[in-house]
């Protein structure tokens, strides 16, 4: 039974949210754990983080726009038991503190006072933004997997897959946007950027493999066993109507090809630009595939019932309005 309630905005939002959260999480990890004390790290990562804010913001716009009542989106923050509620909170934390952190790097003269003041809170802000980002990354998977009604989502593999994918795409995004404005173009920044670039490159090589493994494990395990509904979806992915999209698009172009480029075309444009772009596209495609795999186990006869209902454009629905008599 297909549920047509969440469509492309949600898929895009999950992708963008994971991407943005992942960038902040990686930035915080790099700054605090990998290169502690080297302030240049944050500087070269300021632009990717700005992109992360844009991504998250765009994601939020899509999410709010998808609401039935966008103007009261603030209601989303109310209830503790809700995954969405926590998602909204961590996303806000990530974006707000990430934005403050980013402001502190803005090099405009007239802004220097404010930036200087904000610079005091850099570590604090980045810590919160990174933590928030990490939570967002986790949340995007948990968000779907907590909905037990949808057996293709309700698997622990999904948060793992989304987390890996989010970090992988974050790596890819950072590698193609690192070191730009507002980082000053100096030898030092170039070196730091290059070091991070190499590091993330290595990490992404591993992440893509992991993602491939987890994805295949998840899909193929549904294909083998799994309940009827998930099995049906898995068949659609593997040898059904989406097989080309899955094997060629997702596995081939989204994971295997960039992996090959990463490994065998090191140093070329193919590895540093084409592969990350493919990873990003693959990540986005993954979210679409998963979100559109929202089959719910039907009640007996439910498919037949809804199949016979008219679509909302049927003429008889719009022909008459009560209160407006014709004759």
């Amino acid at each position: 039974m297909r549920h047509h309630y969440w469509e492309w905005p949600i898929a895009t939002y999950l992708f963008l949210g994971g991407l943005g959260g992942g960038i902040f999480a990686l930035t915080a990890i790099l700054q605090f754990f990998v290169f502690p004390g080297i302030t240049m790290v944050s500087e070269v990562l300021a632009w990717p983080c700005f992109l992360a804010i844009v991504f998250c913001g765009l994601g939020c716009v899509l999410l709010v726009g998808e609401l039935g009542q966008p103007l009261v989106f603030y209601r989303a923050f109310i209830k503790n038991t809700s995954v969405i509620c926590w998602g909204a909170r961590v996303l806000s934390v990530c974006m707000i503190f990430g934005f403050i952190w980013f402001l502190s790097y803005i090099p405009w003269d007239w802004f220097s006072g404010i930036a200087g003041f904000l610079a005091i809170f850099r570590d604090f802000c980045l810590a919160l933004a990174g933590l928030g980002g990490a939570c967002v990354v986790l949340y995007t998977g948990i968000f779907l997997s907590s909905l037990k009604a949808h057996s293709f989502w309700a698997t622990p593999a999904l948060p793992v897959l989304f987390t890996i994918s989010a970090l992988s795409t974050a790596c890819a995004c950072i590698t193609i946007s690192i070191g730009w404005w507002p980082a000053e173009l100096t030898l030092n920044t170039l070196i730091v950027a290059e070091v991070i670039h190499e590091l993330l490159h290595e990490i992404d090589v591993i992440l893509v493999v992991c993602e491939l493994v987890v994805l295949l494990v998840m899909v193929l395990s549904f294909l083998g066993a799994g309940n009827v509904t998930a099995n049906k979806v898995a068949h659609r992915w593997v040898n059904g109507s989406w097989a080309a999209l899955f094997w060629v698009g997702m596995i081939g172009l989204g994971l295997v090809l960039p992996e090959i480029l990463y490994v065998f075309a090191g140093g070329t444009l193919a590895s540093s630009v084409v592969a990350p772009v493919l990873v990003l596209a693959g990540g986005c495609l993954l979210r679409f595939l998963v979100v559109y795999s929202d089959e719910r186990a039907p009640l007996p006869g439910e498919d037949l019932f809804y199949e016979k209902l008219p679509d909302n454009k049927a003429p008889f629905i719009h022909k008459w309005t009560y209160g407006k008599n014709i004759f």
Partner: peptide, 15 residues
């Protein structure tokens, strides 16, 4: 109090 986020719609196993 509803804003139609559809979380519940997707949560209900009975549709």
């Amino acid at each position: 109090q509803c804003m139609a986020c559809k979380a519940c719609v997707n949560a209900c196993p009975y549709g």
